[in-house]
């Protein structure tokens, strides 16, 4: 083997160690006592399994198991956003791709232009809207600003542009209504894009800290990122429990990643088509 090849492998292995070690640290530390975690050098293999870390993580600082509520909130918000994104984006993408009407291009450009408006720049006005609508501390409040994304509409439109019109016309001739065509012919035929969009939308909300910080200030309505950030503040010296809480927060995403890998990885490469 030539030196170049060895160097290349060494570089890749180094990067691999860098990405994987912190993950291994989270998993192993979640089973250790704080004392063991903070011993030098870090032992990597737990001498005995401290499952109570997980109990502590779930019980929370006040012993009221609020974490379970918060996990449920995150699940509800992420699922709802994924569902509505898929539905609204495919409907709009279908309308823009397969119907001719005046102002179609203008509407499409208007929707695309919103990609340039970062959430961080409009969160203050959105916060004021949420206060006016009195939807703070509710699931509606968590979900409302994320119902659909311009990126989703774009993806669906691109995908449906190549959808054969003959299918649609045949269904029309058979007397199927337009809504029926959308729901029973178009929608089921978009599975790959839909799965990708759903994954992107779901993880976006699973990861969202900023908006819940604004609208969900009561403990029962907090989401996972908020719970963890508070738990870290309250229990900064209980490292085992912190890592257990972090691991619990990650398990659903890791499971999703393992079973839907291609939609995750494909999902990032869809951005390729966004250039220009």
């Amino acid at each position: 083997m030539r030196i170049g090849k060895i160097a290349a492998r060494a570089a890749l292995a180094l990067l691999l160690a860098f990405t994987v070690m912190p993950l291994l640290f989270m998993v192993t530390a979640s089973l250790m006592s704080s004392r063991e975690i903070m011993s030098m050098p870090y032992p990597w293999i737990p001498s005995s399994l401290h499952y109570e870390n997980f109990v502590k993580a779930v019980r929370g600082n006040d012993g009221n198991f609020i974490y379970l509520r918060n996990i449920l909130n995150s699940l509800i918000a992420a699922t709802a956003v994924a569902a509505s994104t898929v539905l609204l984006a495919s409907s709009a993408g279908y309308g823009l791709a397969k119907f001719r009407f005046k102002g179609r291009m203008a509407l499409f450009m208007l929707i695309m232009a919103t990609m340039m408006i970062p959430f961080e720049a409009i969160m203050i006005p959105l916060y004021m809207v949420a206060m006016k609508l009195r939807i703070q501390n509710s699931h509606v409040g968590l979900i409302l600003p994320f119902l659909v994304s311009a990126f989703g509409v774009f993806q669906m439109r691109q995908y449906l542009t190549t959808f054969p019109v003959e299918f649609l016309d045949a269904a029309r001739v058979d007397g199927m209504g337009e809504l029926g065509i959308f729901w029973r012919i178009v929608f089921p035929n978009c599975k790959p894009v839909i799965a990708t969009l759903a994954v992107i939308a779901f993880r976006g909300q699973w990861d969202n800290l900023l908006w819940p910080l604004l609208v969900s200030q009561s403990d029962e309505m907090k989401t996972i990122p908020q719970y963890i950030s508070t738990f870290v503040q309250e229990r900064s010296t209980d490292q085992g429990a912190l890592m257990a809480a972090a691991l619990i927060a990650s398990v659903p995403m890791l499971l999703m990643f393992m079973s839907l890998t291609r939609y995750f990885i494909g999902g990032s490469s869809v951005y390729e088509s966004r250039k220009g």
Binding site: V232, M243, A246, S250, L254, F264
Partner: peptide, 18 residues
């Protein structure tokens, strides 16, 4: 390489703070 991207930013920060 991709796996860390699956975790939420808050979890990433928590791991690294330790």
């Amino acid at each position: 390489y991709y796996t860390p991207a699956v975790l939420s930013s808050v979890v990433a920060a928590t791991i690294w703070m330790l």
